[in-house]
């Protein structure tokens, strides 16, 4: 190849396509895997791919949310739910009698998305992407939005106590 210059490689495009392979490949694995446990693992790959999109969009905090909450916590919860409800390594068909209903719904959703994406005139801003969004978010959260920030902790507290109240078996003394 004449005049090959490594700095000319469009790194952003390469990362974008690799992440697209992760996202769509993972999603495909979720729906085609015969093993429900493997499907959940493919879901983590798909979530990870979406993290890359957020990084490319300069949304550092959202990338972190995607990685920690979706690829971390939600995926773990799904894996737990599978292990609670069935033998994890059982190979069974993922289709049941309602497969045609979900096919119909998935097709309808697909049509709606295609129509919306085609119909909306997506505006493109000339402004440069905001630098260091995490710092700005930190200034906002610990500055003007300090009270909502602390209320988040209260909300998480309520969620924790609520979950334990619902899930815990009653002790003999309470019955």
């Amino acid at each position: 190849m004449p005049n090959f210059d490594p700095s000319q490689i469009p790194l952003v495009s390469i990362v974008f396509w690799v992440m697209t392979v992760f996202t769509l490949g993972g999603a495909l694995g979720v729906v085609t895997s015969r093993n429900l446990f493997h499907a959940a693992l493919y879901l983590i790959l798909s979530f990870f791919g979406v993290t890359g999109y957020y990084v490319l969009l300069s949304a550092g905090f959202l990338a972190m949310v995607q990685l920690m909450v979706y690829a971390g916590a939600i995926a773990i919860l799904i894996l737990f739910a599978i292990m609670f409800s069935r033998r994890p390594m059982a190979h069974e068909s993922q289709a049941n009698q309602q497969w045609w209903l979900s096919l119909l719904l998935a097709l309808a959703l697909f049509v709606v998305l295609v129509v919306v994406v085609g119909a909306v005139n997506w505006p493109v801003s000339d402004a440069a992407p905001a630098a260091d969004t995490v710092t700005q978010l930190g200034v906002a959260l610990l500055g003007s939005y300090l009270i909502p920030f602390e209320v988040v902790a209260v909300l998480l507290s309520v969620a924790m106590i609520g979950a334990i109240f619902l899930a815990r078996e009653k002790t003999e003394a309470e019955e």
Binding site: V69, I74, L77, M160
Partner: peptide, 12 residues
């Protein structure tokens, strides 16, 4: 459940 809640806390 507790893991998820502390996960979100770490995020903040």
């Amino acid at each position: 459940m507790v893991f998820i809640l502390f996960d979100i806390e770490v995020l903040f």
